[in-house]
């Protein structure tokens, strides 16, 4: 039992990273109607920018973090304005294909701009919290706790904004029906560009957090996380904002549990488990079934 709790504590930072990344993917999917397969690589750019500021220019890690996130926001916003807005006629599949094309382009540029050697990035907080409970000692890195708390707070803020502010109402209106939203006077183009920007920013924040915790920034760092985010989106259901985020909490936690049992094969087991879930509930755990019209 104690060792299980310890494993969950070790894993807490990853939950935070996953939640941020999944929130980003869900946001673009709901408002801009794009499953952004390129989000992972986009986030990696953010982590590289932050690490570049820190390592090459000697900037303070906190300011480097802000720098990485801002650059990613701008890239995301620009992608929507320059590319995605011309893709409205090519349908959902066409837009997904464009994000796949973006993966190729961005991953080609990363080694050209940043070189092929991984970067370092320091933890924001050094040291650990240690405490005794029920006769066992528990330990968590300060940085891991910070990552988890910050990620969850940001997610909470975005949720509150989505459901309590005028901006959130406009996002949700665009998400449920862009045409009607446009008729009601909402600038849907700005909404989608903004959601591209915000979700890229969330994802890059996740990437910087991951880089800081592992003190290592490299080109493939977000590949698995982005895949899991997409799985969480499908598993949580496309109809809600909450479902995918809950999926993002369950998946890394389950992996950690499985790793205790099966070691090397934990990831394989987990993916199989997620696949089965999607097969049993194709509309997602929290999704609603819709009737097909003939």
């Amino acid at each position: 039992m104690a060792s299980m709790i310890q494993i969950l504590l070790n894993n807490l930072f990853l939950v935070g990273v996953m939640v941020l990344s999944t929130l980003g993917i869900t946001l673009t999917f709901k408002t801009a109607n794009v499953a952004n397969f390129a989000q992972g690589i986009l986030a990696t750019v953010g982590a590289f920018v932050a690490a570049f500021f820190f390592m090459r220019m000697g900037v303070d890690p906190w300011i480097s973090l802000v720098g990485g996130v801002v650059v990613c926001f701008i890239i995301g916003y620009t992608i929507d304005v320059l590319i995605m807005s011309f893709m409205s006629s090519s349908g959902a599949v066409g837009r997904v294909m464009v994000t796949l094309g973006l993966i190729l382009i961005i991953s080609a540029f990363i080694p050209i701009i940043f070189g092929m050697i991984p970067y370092n990035f320091p933890r924001f907080f050094a040291g650990n919290f240690t405490w005794e409970m029920m006769g066992s000692t528990f330990i968590i890195t300060r940085n891991g706790l910070f990552t988890f708390v910050t990620s969850m707070s940001i997610t909470a803020i975005i949720f509150i904004a989505l459901y309590k502010t005028k901006w959130g109402l406009m996002v949700r209106a665009t998400a449920s029906n862009a045409t009607v939203a446009a008729m009601l006077g909402i600038n849907t183009k700005r909404m989608t560009a903004l959601s591209w920007g915000i979700s890229s920013a969330c994802a890059s924040l996740a990437a910087v957090f991951l880089g800081a915790q592992t003190t290592n920034v490299h080109a493939d760092m977000m590949a698995v996380i982005a895949t899991i985010s997409l799985l969480a989106l499908v598993m949580g259901g496309f109809t809600s904002f909450f479902g995918p985020v809950i999926g993002a909490i369950i998946i890394p936690t389950a992996t950690a549990m499985l790793a205790m049992i099966s070691g090397l094969w934990a990831n394989v087991l987990l993916y199989t488990f997620v696949l089965l879930t999607i097969l049993i509930k194709p509309m997602g755990i929290f999704g609603k079934k819709t009737m097909e019209k003939v």
């Binding site: 499953a35 895949t227 997409l230 394989v268 696949l275 097969l279």
Partner: peptide, 27 residues
């Protein structure tokens, strides 16, 4: 599987399937 899931779901499923195989390869 593809009969139960469509479009985007299917892309994600094939991606997951590929990830499983890649995990098998590197383990």
């Amino acid at each position: 599987i593809s009969l139960r899931v469509r479009g985007l779901h299917l892309l994600v499923i094939t991606l997951a399937f590929a990830t499983i195989l890649n995990e098998l390869f590197i383990t």
